[in-house]
Nucleic acid binder design. Structure first.
Lengths: 343, 343
DNA sequence: TAACAAGATGTTACCGGTAACAGCGCCCTT
DNA sequence: AAGGGCGCTGTTACCGGTAACATCTTGTTA
């Protein structure tokens, strides 16, 4: 094994390359980055040396020198339940895929509570870690101030719509999706649709509720008082108990699949059949929702694509280019057996 | 606003602190790190300057200088379904919590397929990003070689047991957990327990199957041929169809909740009641499994704790200290209505 | 043919830390 | 009183890159 075998011993540096190619470090650096203003013959020689030595630039040194780390920060919270969990991990994977494709690293920071200080700590960690920009999974409604504070620290893209915040955000059109669910149920002959919403301080709750309400209004249907859950099946169950004994309830839209599960449980427990007596729809297309009894009508969003689009927007932002106008993640209404014609 | 207001303008550096305190940069550095061999009075002066200027060390510069990045790498794959998805995100959160507590950053890299090259690329990315060590979520059986390759690049802790790999790993005792399920079913009067396993190249499949088999053997029960699924509810459904018509089947243990869902769907479709005719148990305690009909008996593992323990082991490893012997994540059998006495 | 622009390369300094070593004062030995 | 060790502090160099500027060729133009 010769001294120059790649991967053995100390990693090759630019200085090694320069020496091997008989040029200055600076010239080697120029070639390594793309070779502007370098003679073709020289460049070829340097490239040969790079290959022979297995040289790869050290991102840390580069970051120190340029002040830019070529790292995307991922800021997310620690709730582990369904809504956040599975969607979040898919978004993360999308982010990582897109970032890697662009040669960027990904650092993560999480926060346990939604208050300003905690979040700011997390952003600071990312900033100090050399992140050039942040993708912020900020799911709660009153995040506007926090978002502005984060944006002041680092360029940012949010992964949800946030009221009173007009910075960059990539998101699915949750209100439209909720409207699709309502339209579907109305078209099945239901005169109105009841709603079991998520916690009011969550953006997704708010938008799903809004979309539900607007769609009902649009069709001229009565808008019943919504019930509020906390995303868990148990809270869905409790809401379901309250709806089960009201014979005018024939269609229920739960803001996520888990709560839909609880709703169905309660309905059945009270002797009402799904979907014969009551149609139930969810949101998220959680794994397994196709083999519930009955299989659940729900909304599916491509979360990985969500993550990829967020990175795309962030990169444009970092390069000072105008954002893509099309940054809305597509959704799809998946109709299954939990919703059926009324009467 | 004075020049010294923290957070305004350029971040304070060690040089700024040194100048403000009237000492050399080196002394300032010593104090910033803990103040060995520094006069108490001097140290106090430096600390005051640090506070006044809002100085915080730059991890990048430190990493360049020391060669250690104070970053934990998180290596995981891109499958988004249940088993990986939700468990993975919880482990990640645990990792991030523990790392943050220790003042470490977290970088992630994902890989799309299990082949050596792809995984090695991902580790390399982490290595170049300044990670000191890696937590590797390597869920497949034949990973031993890959693990050794990763370990050769960076100190590593795996989050699953891997056959023929004797490096550090933190994991739940999946075989024991599977045994607990079987024991529970046997104690209910079932003469044997059928199994719907996950893909054979997954460690968790293998261990759950092994634990199931051993427990049956131990109790002297017959060991029926296991059926193999792919973690999805659909595959559980298909397995369920094959078991449904065999009257000797009275208890089924599925290797995850999603497949259990499919199994139950098939059984009911074929007119067999759960749990009256057939008991079904799953694994994972997926959100909502408490409001399935019937609520699902399953195994719950504290994934966040899993992540925390992995970090703890990694840190010991990095410091050259002996690993904790107790690195087994506890699990819990959760008994619900999907399992019932036989006869 | 002198002047000058553009291309190619090298030199120097710097990013913000840390390590290694040198120097200085002081107290304690002997 | 000289020597030695210790506590504290400063100096210098280095980590692996990049930016800014200087220098030296060329080829082009007036």
């Amino acid at each position: 094994m010769s001294d120059e075998t790649p991967q053995v011993g100390r990693r090759a540096t630019l200085t090694d390359v320069a020496r091997a190619a008989g040029v200055s470090r600076q010239t080697a650096s120029r070639v390594a980055r793309g070779g502007e203003n370098v003679n073709a013959r020289t460049a070829a020689r340097v490239r040969r040396a790079i290959k022979a030595l297995g040289y790869r630039p050290d991102p840390i040194a580069r970051a120190l020198s340029t002040g830019r780390g070529r790292i995307v920060g991922l800021l997310t919270h620690q709730l582990t339940h369904q809504r956040t969990g599975l969607g979040a991990v898919s978004i993360m994977i999308g982010v990582e895929q897109a970032a890697t494709e662009l040669g960027l690293g990904v650092s993560i920071a999480t926060f346990a509570s939604f208050d300003r200080g905690t979040v700011q700590d997390a952003v600071d960690r990312l900033a100090r870690a050399g992140c050039d920009g942040v993708i912020f999974m900020a799911p709660w409604v009153s995040a506007a101030k926090t978002l502005r504070a984060v944006e002041a620290t680092l360029p940012m893209v949010a992964t949800s719509e946030v009221p009173e915040y007009d910075g960059l955000a990539v998101h699915a059109d949750a209100a439209k999706a909720a409207g699709d669910v309502v339209d579907h149920l109305v078209s099945l002959g239901h005169t109105t649709v009841h709603h079991v919403g998520g916690p009011p301080d969550w953006t997704s709750s708010r938008l799903r509720l809004l979309g539900w309400e607007n769609a009902l209004r649009r069709t001229g249907a009565e808008v019943p008082e919504p019930l509020i859950g906390d995303w868990t099946a148990r809270s869905g169950y409790e809401a379901g108990l309250r709806l089960a004994d009201d014979p005018s309830v024939t269609a229920i839209f739960a803001a996520n699949d888990e709560m839909a599960l609880g709703v169905i449980y309660a309905l059945i427990e009270r002797g009402r059949h799904v979907p014969e007596d009551v149609s139930v729809a969810g949101y998220d297309d959680a794994p397994g929702s196709d083999y519930l009894r009955p299989p659940l009508t729900t909304i599916k969003v491509d979360d990985a694509e969500h993550g990829r689009q967020a990175v795309a927007q962030l990169i444009l932002r970092l390069n000072g280019e105008p954002p893509l106008p099309s940054a809305v993640v597509p959704h799809e209404l998946i109709i299954r057996a939990s919703t059926a014609p009324h009467e």
